[in-house]
Design a protein around this nucleic acid. Structure first.
Lengths: 221, 221
DNA sequence: TAGATTGTTAATCGATTAACAATC
DNA sequence: TAGATTGTTAATCGATTAACAATC
């Protein structure tokens, strides 16, 4: 956890919907992942201990996280996968669909476009871009590869909230600059490059090797 | 951070090398990522504030994390990129090369095999596997695609420490079971499937959509 | 020197979890 | 009923950060 929690003292609305701390939001997201998978596997009910087995998050903490928002479980039984999913979605405000633009139609871009990892969580890829003229007009999964011109128009028209960058390191910063200009506020960076943006823009850089270093440390220690 | 810290009270060795807490290990890994990139960009010196700008980790915390292990910086100047990299590598015991086996030679597997994200951090892909007979014998980047037979022999001979799974969801659990049997203790799972393993085995499941949900929450709130 | 940045302290705050009553 | 699991309390512990002296 990198930063601290900010509480919004509410002027006593009907529900005490404080802003979540980074830790809680992160954990709720992970519960959602387990629940989504569990649903796919046809599981109807899940206990806090079972979620703990998958996430390595302490079962007491799971119950505590959830009980802050209501009594979602049944003692002696566990949580309904269906209804807990709905509850967490509500807490995270992620009930509705969100639109994504994908930049880069190489191997990684194609892998992302053809997988359902994003779709499973309500993220819809609505546009795929590449700078290689040879690729423009071809198809990646169901998507037509386009040229990344008039970004702000496209971002507006297609109601794009998130840009996913699967481009070479060298191209990442320049593209990010253009995206910021076009009004994008969430960038998901799969390139290895570090990206600098105004503070209003969130950049999430995926770094598997860093995660691996981290895992390895605990393996060695 | 999901679990708590464990301190190994040392019988007074020369250096008080406690076991790192999850939080510290995670943050040190991220500093390493920034330093690796900074080095590529030809930067010689970096301040805690600059690292903070990239990682969104508070600069005081960065200095505090580092000062637990020595005085690595120069007041008024910052940290030497080169020497700080070496120091963190030492702290994380990640100085030496580690061998990785990659499973799955589809779009994602190919993207991983041809990128340098792992190589940048001392992880060497030494074997690529696929279950599709049509792919066996073909090349993915510099690697020959092999059949995943005799896993324990290969794991031993090639000194493989980590298995990276870029396979379909349906295949993940069965493959993980075979890997555990073959003696693998760190599995990096890029499939969307949840994997269950004995507790001695570390599974890291990459879940971009979950990260996105999390980022989106703070965007919406 | 003047400016910048580290290293460290001290105080606060949130995260974590063992334990257990409640109850399905 | 007996067994299982939730919801909650209470206590501890680590993370976080503002502030500032030290010093390059």
């Amino acid at each position: 956890m990198s930063t601290h929690e900010t509480i919004q003292p509410l002027s006593d609305g009907p529900k005490p919907s404080k802003r979540l701390s980074l830790g809680v939001a992160s954990r709720l997201s992970r519960y959602l992942q387990v629940l989504t998978q569990a649903k796919k596997m046809g599981i109807k009910t899940i206990s806090s201990q079972e979620i703990a087995d998958y996430t390595h998050i302490n079962s007491t903490q799971i119950r505590r996280d959830l009980s802050g928002f209501g009594k979602f479980g049944k003692r002696g039984v566990g949580y309904s996968v269906e209804s807990l999913t709905a509850q967490i979605r509500r807490i995270l405000h992620t009930g509705s669909e969100r639109n994504i633009a994908l930049f880069g139609a190489g191997y990684l871009g194609t892998a992302i476009a053809t997988s359902d990892i994003f779709a499973d969580h309500g993220f819809q890829i609505v546009a795929v871009f590449d700078s290689d003229i040879a690729k423009i007009g071809s198809k990646v999964g169901p998507h037509l590869v386009r040229k990344a011109d008039n970004l702000s128009t496209i971002v507006n028209d297609e109601e794009i909230v998130v840009a996913v960058l699967a481009v070479p390191n060298e191209a990442a910063q320049a593209l990010a600059d253009r995206l910021v200009e076009a009004g994008i506020t969430i960038i998901f960076n799969y390139s290895g490059a570090l990206i600098q943006t105004p503070s209003a823009v969130t950049v999430h850089t995926s770094s598997p090797a860093v995660d691996l270093l981290y895992a390895l440390y605990f393996y060695l220690a």
